[in-house]
């Protein structure tokens, strides 16, 4: 399956995906590529942050519960340092109470892929 049929404005948009589960990473990478995105995957937030600082990305999709730096902390740093990067959190947990006012979509796993694509843009 290819990215044929994906909206032209989406083709080539770079997305960083962070999750500590390799199968989730492979699944997200496969489906997002079929949607026309260029996808890089990372198994921890620290490595992802280094890549986001070094290269251009359009969006970040991150799990929240990760070894080391948590997904929400990563998203806050990225929004502060790289405001052009759209951040989306995908987690099996509800957001913490302190999260209520933030403008970061928080999607619950198993995520609706339509909702994920809409959040990435």
């Amino acid at each position: 399956m290819t990215a044929r049929g994906a909206p032209p404005d989406r083709l080539g948009r770079r997305v960083a995906v962070v999750d500590d589960d390799p199968r989730t990473l492979r699944t997200m990478q496969l489906l997002l590529r079929e949607e026309g995105y260029s996808v890089e995957v990372f198994s921890d937030a620290t490595t992802a942050l280094e890549a986001l600082r070094a290269e251009h990305f359009d969006a970040l999709v991150t799990d929240h519960v990760l070894p080391g730096l948590q997904g929400l902390a990563l998203a806050r740093i990225v929004r502060r340092e790289m405001p052009h990067v759209r951040c989306v959190i995908v987690s099996g947990h509800d957001p913490p109470k302190s999260f209520a006012d933030e403008e970061i979509p928080w999607l619950i796993k198993p995520v609706s892929f339509d909702a994920l694509v809409a959040a990435i843009g």
Binding site: D19, R23, T27, G92, D114
Partner: peptide, 23 residues
């Protein structure tokens, strides 16, 4: 506490299948 969420092989396949079906 400290639960992280992933996918078992069957659910990963089902998720891909359902997403492609919806598409």
């Amino acid at each position: 506490p400290s639960t992280t969420h992933g996918l078992c092989a069957a659910c990963a396949g089902y998720f891909v299948e359902q997403t492609r079906r919806a598409r």
